[in-house]
């Protein structure tokens, strides 16, 4: 049953001290970037913009620590042979591992709630924008996790999985690939500018502009990388 794999993967992260280390690093970096690098103290933060604006970069650094365990460690320890001979479809295994990794990141994101409550005591919050920012961050987490899981599935060395996941994540979110491709093409309608860029789609959520196109961007990119992951895992298998 896929839920057993989900639970095992989730719990395996908490067997050692790595979960607590990652959580501590997340809180530390998030606060430093929001308070000292960002403009948290100098602008009215009704939407916590300065907190959420750095979340993709932070998760791009931390999520590969989680996803490197998903597949690379299974390959390294040989447990992948057990896993792939269980009566569970490849699709369910890939999804279970992806959801376990996402859950850990969602727990990390939940560490922002005390800051939200504290801010809400002093400011009149823009709750619509806050919900939109959380939704955008959740979708970004899913996208980065899917990339990390895919990268982890193509290597048997966890450290290689981490570094590849880190580089791929930073490149995907840091460079506006969509704009680069579109700039090379002729006669492209103006409204396509930024449609394929991570930053502009994420910014839509931070500014409270919930739109289907941005949601579709993150969901489809997540599904695409999960599909790649499934292809790699099921390469050997029939299903």
């Amino acid at each position: 049953m896929w839920s057993s794999i989900y639970k095992r993967d989730l719990m395996s992260f908490f067997y050692g001290s790595s979960a607590y280390f990652v959580f501590a690093v997340y809180v530390l970096i998030s606060m430093i970037l929001a308070f000292f690098w960002g403009t948290y103290f100098f602008s009215a933060n009704q939407s916590m913009y300065s907190y959420f604006s750095y979340q993709p970069q932070i998760f791009a650094i931390l999520i590969p620590i989680i996803t490197m365990r998903s597949w690379a460690e299974e390959h390294k320890n040989g447990t992948v042979e057990n896993l792939l001979t269980f009566p569970v479809s490849g699709l369910k295994i890939v999804t279970a591992k992806f959801l376990a990794a996402c859950t850990i990141s969602f727990v990390m994101l939940a560490f922002s709630i005390p800051l939200l409550i504290t801010t809400a005591i002093y400011l009149d919050m823009d709750w619509g924008n806050i919900i939109s920012s959380y939704l955008g961050t959740i979708l970004a987490i899913m996208f980065i996790t899917a990339v990390g899981c895919f990268v982890s599935s193509i290597t048997s060395l966890p450290i290689v999985a981490y570094l590849s996941g880190l580089i791929s994540g930073l490149l995907l979110i840091g460079i506006n690939w969509g704009s680069i491709i579109i700039s090379k093409m002729d006669n492209v309608p103006f409204y396509l500018n930024g449609v394929l860029d991570f930053s502009s789609n994420y910014r839509d959520f931070l500014t409270g502009q919930l739109n289907i196109a941005s949601m579709f961007y993150f969901v489809s990119a997540t599904i695409l990388f999960l599909f790649f992951n499934w292809l790699v895992i099921c390469d050997r298998r029939i299903r």
């Binding site: 095992r8 395996s12 050692g16 040989g78 447990t79 001979t85 009566p87 479809s89």
Partner: peptide
Amino acid sequence: NFEKYLSKIGYMPENTPLYGEM
């Protein structure tokens, strides 16, 4: 039917790979 097929088998690979942390 892979589920039916695989549930008929109990398999222990060479070197007994198990999850050491459990």
